[in-house]
Simulated scan of single mutants.
Amino acid sequence: MSEDEKPDDARLFFSEEETAALLGIHRTTLRALALKGRAPIEAIHVSEHKRIYRRIDVERLAGIAK
């Protein structure tokens, strides 16, 4: 089972789009902050143009961590 096929509660990472939505900011804002090294949470660079974020970091920052 790939990361994308896991149930929502078993995923370890969120995409840039999912992260931005949970934080209530636009995806391009999150991307711009990440490129400047000023994102509120650390991005994991998968490739030059793709970043993912640790689920636990996103949920803690968004105030929804269990």
Rank of each mutant, 00 (worst) to 15 (best):
T19M: 00
T19P: 01
T19Y: 01
A20N: 04
A20T: 04
A21R: 12
A21V: 09
L22P: 02
L23G: 02
L23F: 09
L23V: 06
L23P: 01
G24Y: 04
I25M: 15
I25R: 03
T28R: 10
T28E: 12
T29N: 13
T29R: 11
L30P: 04
L30I: 08
L30H: 06
R31M: 10
R31F: 06
A32K: 13
A32F: 06
A32M: 05
A32V: 05
L33V: 01
L33D: 08
L33F: 10
L33C: 09
L33P: 00
L33E: 07
L33W: 15
A34S: 15
A34G: 04
A34N: 09
K36M: 03
G37V: 10
G37D: 11
G37E: 11
G37C: 03
G37N: 04
R38Q: 14
R38D: 10
A39L: 11
P40A: 13
I41A: 01
I41W: 01
I41P: 02
E42P: 14
E42Q: 15
E42I: 07
A43Y: 06
A43S: 15
A43M: 07
I44Y: 08
I44E: 15
I44P: 02
H45T: 09
H45V: 02
V46D: 09
V46Q: 12
V46F: 10
V46N: 05
S47G: 07
E48Y: 11
E48S: 11
H49I: 09
H49E: 11
H49N: 13
K50R: 15
K50A: 08
K50F: 07
K50S: 12
K50Y: 06
R51A: 03
R51T: 00
R51W: 09
R51Q: 05
R51D: 01
